[in-house]
């Protein structure tokens, strides 16, 4: 059991305010994980620990049985990709140029993108449905379009693990479903791992294999969605009343809330 991520008592605090408290988790590959919890409960910080943007102050984060400290940044960038929450791009790069930046970890310092890099960039744009805007300038796109460009960039990175930090926060329902479908396909057809911070519990219920409930920096519960998605856990973590039932139309378990 050394495949995927293993966290052992991983802890991280900003100054004195703890963001991730002694988290221990096993995340085997080939699944779509949904990370859910209230705002500020440490979800983004947990993703930062997984991609070594931050180092745990105590405990250990391992990937494939090796501590993340043993990976160079470049090596890790070939294993794990991240779609961050903020997706501002400050200069007038074209969509194609930004998507190609996903190939950065594979191109030697003074090298040029090879045909394989171009192929993967085009494939990623096609999957997200932004091929026709490849020559447009990113600062001129709408918020939702920018977000799709950033998702395409992470797909072009073509890593075994993809971390999505609210990757659909600015998207309409059609494009939101599209990104979850692409993630689902990568998991099922290519055996990849996706770990997604999701605010919409119904999306999490529909697309994820396993759910991780976080509260105040700690794991409240984690496991297959059928086991952990229930009214008690939702009440404990979010403090709202809900009902979870199987919806035939959706073909998935769905949550309805008492307003």
């Amino acid at each position: 059991m050394t495949d995927g991520f293993t966290l052992t008592n991983a802890t991280f605090a900003y100054d004195t305010k703890p963001a991730v408290r002694s988290v221990s988790l096993q995340l085997p590959p080939g699944k779509l994980y949904g990370l859910v919890g209230p705002n500020g409960c440490g979800k983004s910080t947990l993703l930062d620990l997984l991609i070594a943007n931050r180092k745990p102050q105590a405990g250990e984060v391992e990937y494939q049985g090796r501590s993340l400290n043993d990976f160079s940044r470049r090596d890790l960038a070939r294993e794990v990709a991240l779609v961050p929450q903020d997706f501002g791009i400050n200069f007038a790069f074209t969509v194609m140029e930004v998507v190609l930046m996903g190939r950065h970890p594979y191109i030697p310092r003074f090298g040029m993108p090879q045909s394989d890099d171009m192929l993967k960039a085009h494939k990623a744009m096609a999957e997200i449905g932004i091929s026709e805007m490849q020559d447009r300038l990113v600062p001129e796109l709408s918020g939702g379009e920018k977000q799709r460009v950033v998702v395409a960039r992470s797909l072009a990175q073509d890593t075994p693990v993809l971390l999505l930090d609210e990757a659909t926060s600015n998207l309409d329902i059609q494009h939101t479903l599209e990104i979850f479908k692409v993630s689902r396909r990568r998991v099922e057809e290519e055996g990849k791992t996706v770990i997604a911070v999701v605010h919409n519990l119904n999306l999490a219920a529909a697309y994820c294999d396993e759910l991780i409930f976080m509260k105040e920096g700690a794991i409240h519960c984690a496991g297959p969605k059928e086991e952990v998605l229930n009214a008690e856990n939702i009440r404990a973590v979010f403090g709202v009343e809900s009902r979870v039932q199987f919806d035939d139309f959706c073909g998935a378990w769905q949550v309805s809330f008492r307003y």
Partner: peptide, 23 residues
């Protein structure tokens, strides 16, 4: 010029550039 390409990547913001292998 040695760091020119890293500088390009850094225009995506620190979280992205870190995740793309730039220190």
């Amino acid at each position: 010029i040695f760091y020119g390409r890293d500088l390009n990547i850094m225009s995506l913001g620190q979280r992205s550039s870190d995740s793309l292998g730039v220190d």
